[in-house]
Amino acid sequence: MSHQPVKFYQTGTFTVGNRLLDESIRSVQATKTRSNSLNSGHRACQGCGEALGARYALDAAMDVSQRQLIAANATGCLEVFSTPYPETSWQLPWIHSLFGNAAAVATGIAAALRAKGRSDVRVIAQGGDGGTTDIGFGCLSGMFERNDDVLYLCYDNEAYMNTGVQRSSATPPAVRTATTMPLGAEPGNPFGQGKFVPTIAMAHRIPYVATATVADLFDLEYKVKKAIQIRGAKYLHIFVPCPLGWGAASSDTIKLADMAKECGLFPVFEAEHGKVTGVSKIRKLIPVEDYLKLQRRYAHLFGKAPATDVISKIQARADENIRTYGLLDTDVR
């Protein structure tokens, strides 16, 4: 297991803070001095998982780099809602160029810092799943294979939300989007398409690849802090529910992220040099149905005549993840 939860102290490390824990093991988010890298006043929707994930990740990175941090941002929700001219929510040096070149811009920043001999400043590139897995994928792969000293953060909300919820290569099967309508024999996004970029990143044998969700803060902070301290290319894929695009209640953002992990659909692990070195075990296994039902993008699978065949195909994907990554712990936790 990558992050070992502290247990038996009422809430252990499951909550953001815990007055019973030693201060040294409390999360960055629990401190009054966190940098709030993405500040109030941003225009993300109510309950935005991406805004939350970005602050979680960048505050941790700011903390561990002593606030010597530069971020390059791809086009997407994160850029649009945080930086409509003339205002910005960012509390760190931040640059936006194009949709597809965040990794390349970050590579340039890293090269400039190297030329200036500034090894203390750390570089982050970040974007949504569209800017990462589709449009920016070429630049990203180049950054990986050159092993540039950049941490790439992908906030995965499983579609192009900013432009009106269009399918991306990270959209799961059966999902309704503006471009995969729930019509015809196989409603929603087809099975057998799309990609899971963390495993592609691992294939580059870069020093560090990990996945995380906004529902497990300690795990997320542990992974960001670890990645920032590694020299070379790093990739962190953060699962961030989108209330608007998923048709979910704005208050369910963290709940959905937790359920995605607990049903096995989103495996949480870390890998070094292409090999999985740690897995977050499922705490209490739930059927995928519980997770799907809360989202209107899956509404066509339920109702009077539930599409049990489709649901069982989604369940099979979760089961495969559980087998592949060993997500179930036979030991009693």
């Binding site: 909550t15 953001v16 629990a30 998982g49 939350l52 953002t253």
Partner: peptide
């Protein structure tokens, strides 16, 4: 437990 403080986007 700091949860509200942490989870607010």
């Amino acid at each position: 437990c700091d949860n509200c403080y942490g989870v607010c986007p």
